Amino acid sequence: MKLDPRLQRVIDWLQAHKTWLSALLTILVLTVAGFALWEILKEVDPDDIGAAFGRITPHQVALSIALTALSFFVLSFYDVLGLHAIHKPQPYWRALLASFTAYNLSHNLGFAPITGAAARWRAYRGTNLDPGDIARIVVIAGVTFWLGIFLLLGVFLVSFPGALRVHDATMNYGTQAAIGTAILIVIAIYLLACAREMGPLNILGWTLPVPTLKQALIQFTLAATDIAIASAALLVLLPPDVWHHYPDFLVAYVVAVVVAMVAHAPGGIGVFEAVVLVTLPEVDKPSLISALILYRLIYYWGPLLIAVALLGLNELRMVRQTRSTGARSAKVKAPPDTGGQHPF
């Protein structure tokens, strides 16, 4: 299909200026998020935040770290599922390396399709995967994540009245339930399409496998489990007397993640925190702020350092492997030592 010349010119212009447009968008999002946070926090006493930090116990921190590790373990199976979907399975350690580094870079740098694909390309280097395969894995992993987001959002919007709030304003349950029901209907249609085994999609000459019903159910289970665990890693940093608000908390967490991803702010910083703060008015603000700061360290920045180190070690391993292969090839090609005499 040939595009209208005017539309093609717009696309070409966007492609030519995408770098500075992305930078401008990031600056704009961070400015808006910073202003929103300032408005939210200006009435909070810094001493109260310090006191709230002091009330977080080592046991809570250890539990958050354990849940973070479990979340990234579950995330690794996004890649395992994608690799099996394209019929090119790899050793588990490589899928774990690819997913851990990809998600940490995309979590912290934003623009997940680009940063996640770059990390996976380095992690899967030296395998039988080509750029098209990497792109398919990125798409499958992304679809899996969004399926989990929508499943949890749909179920909780239908099941828990008043789950969507901004400060003291609560959405009417009829509207909230209608949104949740619409989401669940779309999910049901997706599962029906998978059950009918429609075969791969062909989009502009690029094939993308449609999962079987079994694979789709695994997608929902993996993503919903991961999101529930990741949100729990933040919840356990709050005072235990608010843990029973988990349904409301999970909806707030999911909405914050979605807004942060759509905004493309690096790591959702500022955006994620602002959304959580305005959607959980019943939680003590100093306690919530201290938990969010610590969560940023535990779930985002700590694993990022580990991911960068793992990528570096993998690059060193590849360099050594290349040198070793080259040395063996040179040895095989070298003529035999005859003590200076002609071999014949």
Rank of each mutant, 00 (worst) to 15 (best):
Asn314Met: 03
Ser329Pro: 00
Val308Asn: 05
Ala327Asn: 01
Leu304Asp: 05
Asn314Glu: 15
Thr325Pro: 00
Met318Glu: 06
Ala327Met: 03
Ile306Asn: 09
Thr325Ile: 01
Leu311Val: 12
Val308Ile: 15
Gly326His: 01
Gly302Asn: 05
Ile306Tyr: 12
Val308Trp: 03
Met318Phe: 06
Val319Ala: 01
Gln321Leu: 14
Trp301Asn: 07
Leu313Cys: 13
Leu311Arg: 11
Ser329Thr: 10
Ser329Trp: 06
Ala307Asp: 08
Leu305Arg: 02
Leu311Ala: 06
Ile306Thr: 08
Arg328Gly: 00
Glu315Ile: 14
Arg328Glu: 00
Arg328Asp: 03
Gly312Thr: 11
Gly326Leu: 07
Ile306Asp: 08
Ala309Asp: 06
Gln321Cys: 10
Gly326Pro: 01
Pro303Cys: 08
Arg320Glu: 05
Thr325Ser: 10
Ala327Ile: 01
Thr325Gln: 08
Leu311Lys: 05
Leu305Pro: 10
Val308Cys: 04
Gly326Asn: 10
Lys331Leu: 11
Leu304Ser: 01
Arg328Lys: 11
Leu310Asp: 10
Ser329Gly: 06
Arg320Met: 02
Gly302His: 07
Val319Gly: 00
Gly312Tyr: 13
Ala309Met: 13
Gly312His: 15
Ala307Asn: 12
Ser324Arg: 11
Leu316Pro: 01
Arg323Phe: 09
Ser329Ile: 11
Leu313Trp: 14
Leu305Asn: 08
Trp301Val: 12
Asn314Arg: 08
Thr325Asp: 08
Asn314Gly: 02
Gln321Ser: 11
Gly326Cys: 00
Arg320Gly: 11
Ile306Phe: 15
Gln321Tyr: 11
Leu305Met: 11
Tyr300Gln: 09
Arg320Ser: 07
Asn314Trp: 14
Arg320Cys: 00
Arg317Trp: 14
Arg317Glu: 11
Val308Met: 07
Gln321Trp: 10
Glu315Gln: 12
Gly312Lys: 06
Leu310Thr: 03
Arg320Ile: 01
Leu310Cys: 09
Tyr300Phe: 15
Arg320Trp: 10
Ala327Trp: 00
Pro303Asp: 05
Ala327Tyr: 06
Ser329Lys: 10
Leu313Asp: 10
Ala327His: 09
Arg323Ser: 01
Ile306Cys: 11
Leu310Asn: 07
Asn314Ala: 08
Ser324Gly: 07
Leu311Asn: 15
Gly326Asp: 10
Gly326Val: 04
Leu310Gly: 08
Arg317Asp: 07
Trp301Pro: 08
Tyr300Ala: 09
Arg323Cys: 02
Ala330Met: 04
Gln321Asp: 10
Ser329Val: 06
Arg317Tyr: 15
Pro303Ala: 03
Arg328Leu: 13
Thr325Met: 15
Pro303Thr: 06
Ala307Arg: 13
Leu305Ile: 14
Ser329Phe: 09
Ala309Arg: 02
Val319Tyr: 02
Ser329Asp: 00
Val319Lys: 05
Lys331Arg: 13
Met318His: 07
